[in-house]
Amino acid sequence: MKIDLHEKRIPIIKIGNYLIVSIQVDMHDKLAIQLQSQILDEIEKTGAKGVLIDISVLEMVDSFIGRMLSGMASMASIMDTAVVIVGMQPAVAITLVELGLEMPGVDTALNMENGMEMLEKRLREEDNETFESH
C-alpha cells in the first residue's frame, strides 16, 4: 500500500447525536476547505444535531481558518445543527480579535465537557419548544 504523507484527513467521530472533530494538524487552506465540506456531508449523512470542534492544539487561527470555522457554523445552523468550537487557546483568541476577525454567531466553550453540556442544553430546549407548540 502506498501512503501519501501529504494526504492528511481529519477524522470525524459520531457519538450519539453528535459529531466530534479534533483538529490535530496545522491546516493549509485546502485542508480547511476539505474539512468544512467533510463535516457538512457527515451532518447530512448522520442527521447529527450538534458538532463539537476541538481546536485546543491549534497554535494559530488566521483569517482563513477563522472564516472557515464561522462559515461552517452558519451553514450547519441552516441544516439545523449546532456547532460549538472548543478549547481555543488564549493567545489564539487575542490574535483573532486583534486581526479584526471576531467570528460573530459562533458558539465557543472552554473544553469538550462544557461544549457537550451546551449542545445537550440546546437540544433539551428545542424538545421543550416542540412539546409546547403541540
Binding site: E59, M60, V61, Q89, P90, A91, I94, T95
Partner: peptide
C-alpha cells in the same frame, strides 16, 4: 502571545 501574533 507574540509568537502567535507574528506567526499569524
Amino acid at each position: 502571545v507574540d509568537q502567535t501574533r507574528v506567526t499569524t
